[in-house]
Amino acid sequence: MMNFSLPDGPGESIHVGTGAPLLLMAGPCVLESKEMALEIAREMQAITQRLGISYVFKASFDKANRTSLDSFRGPGVKNGLRILSKLREECNLPVVSDIHEPQHAALAADVLDIIQIPAFLCRQTDLLVAAAETGKVVSVKKGQFVSPWDMKNVVNKLRGSGCETILLTERGASFGYNNLVVDMRSLPVMRSLGCPVVFDATHSVQLPGGAGGSSGGQREFIAPLTRAAMAVGIDGLFMEVHPDPDKALCDGPNSLPLDQVEEMLRNLLKIRNAVGGECGQ
């Protein structure tokens, strides 16, 4: 079993790997308000406790890679980390968010249990080094332009900078313009690098820039793609969920409605139990 404990995290340690509960990182794309974040966190916490899933709340405090200059980016580093800190304390939940600049790593490490590296930035050496030096668990989204076997270079950068625990996430590869395709072979390939693998269920159905001034998405494909990933075998799942995705301020077209989460997770766990959680041959 590959496993890790969340450093300084609330509650019990989280273990990830064969024989361990599924890890779920889920929440809204961007922090829209503290109230909404708490609503989603508490509902997701209740669902995952019923299902025996390890849960980490996710939300971005600042989305620096939005399509348009006018797109909503979030509350910013200072206010966003303050919201995540209060949510972490009030709900007794570990939290994950993404950083876009090396100078944000140390600030984020004071609050986050897992530091996420966005797909577009997975090759940025200074960002990886800064994240590794915090001593936190680092979760890296595989770039849409990077092969799964080339993620070994990302892993080597992190390990060479002192990071002991790395999660690698599949979120689709560029397929022409404004489209992504998921190569399920990437899951066992990345796991062969000695890291737990995560499937990003919602960004994998994104249509980057497909709505003109913003990204589109095909949320009807979230469930079938995730079932396929679960059959291949994954250690964790990443999802963006929202009470009303059509009114979300970011990534609504590829977010899963909150009221559909539990049924989908129950079906996924049946598949995971059937294949034994294995990832590979």
Results as ranks from 00 to 15, higher is better:
residue 2 M to K: 14
residue 4 F to M: 13
residue 8 D to I: 00
residue 19 G to T: 09
residue 26 A to T: 01
residue 27 G to D: 10
residue 32 E to G: 05
residue 34 K to G: 04
residue 34 K to L: 10
residue 39 E to P: 04
residue 41 A to C: 13
residue 43 E to L: 11
residue 49 Q to G: 13
residue 50 R to S: 09
residue 51 L to T: 04
residue 54 S to I: 00
residue 56 V to W: 00
residue 64 A to R: 13
residue 72 F to R: 10
residue 77 V to A: 09
residue 84 L to F: 12
residue 85 S to H: 13
residue 88 R to L: 10
residue 94 P to H: 06
residue 99 I to K: 09
residue 102 P to A: 10
residue 107 L to G: 00
residue 109 A to Q: 03
residue 110 D to V: 01
residue 111 V to F: 03
residue 111 V to W: 00
residue 115 I to G: 08
residue 115 I to H: 12
residue 119 A to T: 03
residue 131 A to I: 00
residue 134 T to L: 05
residue 135 G to F: 02
residue 140 V to G: 00
residue 145 F to M: 10
residue 152 K to M: 10
residue 159 R to A: 01
residue 164 E to P: 01
residue 166 I to T: 05
residue 175 F to I: 08
residue 182 V to S: 12
residue 186 S to L: 07
residue 198 V to C: 06
residue 203 H to V: 06
residue 204 S to F: 10
residue 212 G to R: 13
residue 216 G to L: 05
residue 219 R to S: 14
residue 220 E to G: 15
residue 225 L to K: 11
residue 230 M to R: 08
residue 230 M to E: 09
residue 231 A to D: 08
residue 232 V to L: 01
residue 233 G to Q: 04
residue 238 F to G: 07
residue 240 E to L: 05
residue 244 D to V: 13
residue 245 P to Q: 06
residue 245 P to K: 05
residue 246 D to Q: 15
residue 248 A to V: 01
residue 248 A to E: 01
residue 249 L to R: 13
residue 251 D to F: 07
residue 256 L to N: 12
residue 272 R to E: 07
residue 273 N to H: 15
residue 277 G to E: 09
residue 279 C to F: 02
residue 280 G to L: 13
residue 280 G to K: 08
